[in-house]
Design a protein around this nucleic acid. Sequence first.
DNA 1: CGCACGTCATAACCTGTGGGAATGACCGAA
DNA 2: TTCGGTCATTCCCACAGGTTATGACGTGCG
Lengths: 317, 317
Amino acid sequence: MTELPDIESLQLLVLVGEHRSLTTAAEHVGTTQPAASKRISALERRFGVRLLDRSHTGSTLTSDGRLVCSWAERVIEDVNLLVEGVNALRRERTAQLSLAASLTVAEHLLPTWIGDLRRQVADLHVGLQVLNSTRVCELVRSGEIDLGFIESPRRLRSLRSQIVARDRLVLVVAPGHRWARRRRPVGAAELATTPLISRESGSGTRDTVEQALLATGLTPVEPLLELGSTTAVRSSVATGAGPALLSELVVASDLAAGNLREVATTGIDLHRTLRAVWHTGAAPSGAAAELLALASRAGSSPRTASARDAKSERDRS
Amino acid sequence: MTELPDIESLQLLVLVGEHRSLTTAAEHVGTTQPAASKRISALERRFGVRLLDRSHTGSTLTSDGRLVCSWAERVIEDVNLLVEGVNALRRERTAQLSLAASLTVAEHLLPTWIGDLRRQVADLHVGLQVLNSTRVCELVRSGEIDLGFIESPRRLRSLRSQIVARDRLVLVVAPGHRWARRRRPVGAAELATTPLISRESGSGTRDTVEQALLATGLTPVEPLLELGSTTAVRSSVATGAGPALLSELVVASDLAAGNLREVATTGIDLHRTLRAVWHTGAAPSGAAAELLALASRAGSSPRTASARDAKSERDRS
DNA sequence: CGCACGTCATAACCTGTGGGAATGACCGAA
DNA sequence: TTCGGTCATTCCCACAGGTTATGACGTGCG
């Protein structure tokens, strides 16, 4: 088993690939040329693969190097998302821009948006709390939070909102599953009577499924398997344990890589809208407005929600 | 800027989350309990976020910890792909199973397959070479390679082959681009007369586009921008420079995250088949057969075209 | 009720990796 | 030839991270 590489070295490798030079790559990452040289050498030694063609006019990637580089880029991308997310979490209290979001949004979308936002607005402290949809709405109402992100189709009293993305639950199975080759879409009735792998009762996706089925007058059968985390569900499906309904955001990469297969459904609406919510009256201020614009530009064709301006009733406790 | 975390610590965090115990997580990764404790502490200090609720009966993740963990899982997943890929590259010469593949397959699919394969067959040395399609075929014919993977629609003389996956070039634009809101699909003629961001001439995807257009009797106009790497194209598109045709495998995550938007096309076939090829007569031996089965199970069942249909029914609220 | 076993934290020590500064070797362009 | 650019090498140092040993604290069993 190859020991794990370290992220700094991967970062460096990518930079060398871009700049065709150890020296400039080194100072681009705030270190010196010998350090960079040693790092890459160590990486080559560890991997047992030559990555760089070093010459006295610069260094370029070997063909193996280019390949490794492309894998490294994905790693670094994910690391950046993690870092953005963590930064937002840490700054929860001292934040200039306070956000609250439900899990799906916080996991899959917010780090990207925050990253983009901070590239536009320098020195911005973003704070993030992860809560369920009703708590998010409460905090937005109380003014503790500048902007909230929720996935609930619930009533939004005295809040303004806008759809920023549209998620969809997709029916997925392992490639070996008999449904993988199925051509006719699965109907609502069949879905309701098929035991699925699912999250525990009360989780967002589980609720969405049940709501969607109830909307067609059906009650879902007991699940085949109940697991505590989405990734656990995902890997159970991949091993062929059975079908599951999972967020498109979660399984996109698995579908592309062929680890999972999507099965078409019909007669049931598994879409759910992800909304930004903010306090009535106060239009989102600078950074919040920027984020809102950015998110809705990124997420979906701007289909602005009709502002549900109800009575501004004060139900602070 | 938060300093970058190291992969071992992230790995450890995920394990602690699973095992609810520092001790067992530590030995699971081949180290001692104090080391693990210090690592996690360091991670918390670096991030400025509490990740673990430590008690005398075990340790569980905080809610922040769970979130960080979910981001960490993606990082680790990509790291594993990188490691699998590198392992295959290194073992090129001493391999028990020699593979050759074109870039797209090698980048996006093979690491996964090899990982799965090595989980089934212990102590397997897999060798990988990355070459263009014609070279792959040559090596397979000469017997130097047990199994090849190509994306060419070319003639396969004296080779047996099997479709293992189906890739598709999708037309993508930035979310702010005017085409992002477009409802009518883009036709072949319009595509041919629109300057696109693309790879340099001779690259696989560029060729595919030109072939597909030529098949409809059209010659593409000069590109808007010519870039040397697929990721460069991808980020140019994301910044709004213009539209591009990119492999579904490349942009899947960006589409899910909303960094890019897909624009429907019509009147042009942008599919391309990814095939495994092997030598006539000699049926693939043990490991090769296993890999072939695994790959075609993962990729080849008929793709649900209704995934697109679901998109067109976005008129609800 | 107390003892054994489980958890994690702390302390002391050691090793080795990785960083910095200075220097050398080499190439190409002016 | 000389200068400006590469990268490699060496020496030294610091500190992160490991291990072992130990302690403190709960839980559960006899």
